[in-house]
Write a protein that binds this DNA or RNA. Structure first.
Lengths: 193, 193, 193, 193
DNA sequence: GATGAATGAGATTTCATTCAT
DNA sequence: AATGAATGAAATCTCATTCAT
């Protein structure tokens, strides 16, 4: 339900109004309660839909034969794709992460797990370090670094756009997807740092 | 008012309850209205206090004589210090950034401006690129990369701790502060990438 | 409709839910409105059925040739029979009598009238008093005494069972039917009281 | 709260309207929720007040030195006194007894227990039977008979008044209080029945 | 400064009833 | 006869805000 996603994004769960959502969806308020038992269920279903899609998509993204660089590029692109498809989801997600409830955390955790991404990447980093191609470091730090390089901009875009005077975000994003991988790969390379 | 910060952090602005805040502060609800004009003003004052302190602190942080590395280290440390001092502020800030209102954005923008950090760093990156010590790239991308490497973990710590199985966060943070600078400096170096 | 009677008994007219009644009857809610004009009509029909049966049964109970004792025994037995057949009716009836509406009172009044019982019993008491076999008293008091001796237990059984520690109600009822007549007949006898 | 008692009496718990109760009490609806947490609590407090008074009164009614007849007279009078003081309570009570919830039953049970009445009367009946002054019978039957003779009319007055054509209830009640005791005492006497 | 009571507007939820198929 | 969806009115409850003391 798009109208619901919109209200949850703009006002948050507590600030969202069932009245407004119904009006936005051009249906009678009582119909919301006919299809969903409560505002809470409406909320869960609304974000659950996106979560499920994200899980499915991420799971199918990798065959296991990719190079490290390919994986990084795919992940970087995926984050932006998801946010382009569900622009309002960014708000909802951030609010959830602002004060994460165990239930929601597990939900998101599940998405990552389903993709196999964390374990695969961690293992991969471990191998690369052992092989001497990546400098000695905690693989978890590397993983977090890469994810935050991506998610950080996705989440904070409005602030950064203002501070940095970014006017054409589409263009900037295309650039960023490459920059992120480049910086990261350079950053973790073993060498005379 | 700690009780207010707590409620705003846990429930968000719309979910916060004046009743609960009063009870948490062991005062009569009407007293809140004696000190503040409205819930909105209470909110602004509550977070404004932190904002002001952050502004002051950041402004005084730099004399202009620091090396790039010193600046990066200082910024990395500062983020964690602020969050350690006001742990609940992280939630409040994230909620604000989830659906930023121009007014709040300007507030935060002001903090950065006051510190002189963005312009100084951008200029500095420009110089370093011109001097060939940093690979050719958009200084804004570099700036965003560095900030997200820091802020990303600060904001998403609960999620990352779960995904990565981090149990001792204090320790991990100490490690991260160094890792972030190292990865970034390595990542932006000019060289045979 | 048993499901309706059940809901009216358990929740009362205002507390009964058309949804629940439909579900209990395994039919679609709209079907209820196909058969009955409204909740009110459903209610009237539901209890009207029992009322009509009670009227018919009581009317046919007496030929006019019975002795006083026979009548009393028949009435005492009849109350319990009705409640055994429609156990939930007791609740419905009590609720109605809790705040009797003229319309419902007339309904019940009609049952008594149809049976010819009140006038017959009152006349009979009058004769017995005149003949000196029953002590001088207001026949209406006698009538009420006999009816309450019966109806009182029927209506308050759950409370009495608790207070008196009655575990086998069936057995107790058999005993009560006799006790009631005996006590009453003894109680109204003329003699040296 | 009289307005609440009134609405509960006339409409039952489910049919009572907080709006109406507030209006009847000339207070703001929200004040009801300020003083009572919910409609349910308002209900419990409303009837609890009467229950408590009844408990206290009944407990203090007997010193232990009364003759059987005195006790019976006192009980008979008490029922009518209570109903005269809280005329609407009759409705509320009947509705509760229509579909008794364990919690409410226990409440009422407690009142009887506190008065010591049931155990005292049962014991008394036992003694009288053993002494041959009361005919052999189940004391519980006697007890129920006496209570229903009283409560029956109290509860069913509106119906009986209609059926019997009783116009001056006050007068009738005075008569009934004596009649009930007389009929009962006669009815339980041992003798050639 | 401090408090308990008060209030109006509005939020979520419910429900008898009807409609379209 | 049967159903799922729809609706308007209203019910319970909440909450920011103010008042009287």
């Amino acid at each position: 339900m798009l109208s619901a996603m919109h209200d949850f994004a703009v006002h948050g769960y507590e600030g969202a109004r069932v009245d407004r959502i119904a009006e936005g969806a051009s249906i009678n308020k009582a119909m919301i309660y006919y299809h969903f038992r409560s505002k809470e269920e409406l909320y869960r279903e609304t974000i659950g839909e996106v979560y499920r899609e994200a899980t499915d998509k991420l799971s199918s993204l990798f065959t296991g034969e990719e190079t490290l660089e390919e994986i990084l590029h795919a992940v970087a692109a995926y984050h932006h794709d998801l946010m382009r498809k569900y622009p309002e989801f960014r708000s909802v997600l951030m609010r959830e992460l602002a004060h994460p409830r165990r239930e929601i955390l597990s939900y998101i955790f599940g998405i990552f797990e389903a993709s196999g991404l964390p374990s695969r990447l961690l293992a991969r980093f471990g191998e690369e370090i052992k092989a001497g191609r990546v400098r000695k470091s905690d693989p978890r730090q590397l993983m977090i670094s890469f994810l935050t390089l991506n998610l950080g901009y996705v989440m904070l875009a409005p602030l950064f756009d203002l501070i940095m005077g970014i006017s054409d975000r589409e263009l900037f994003v295309e650039d960023r997807k490459k920059e992120v991988v480049k910086l990261f790969l350079n950053g973790i390379r073993s060498g005379r740092s």
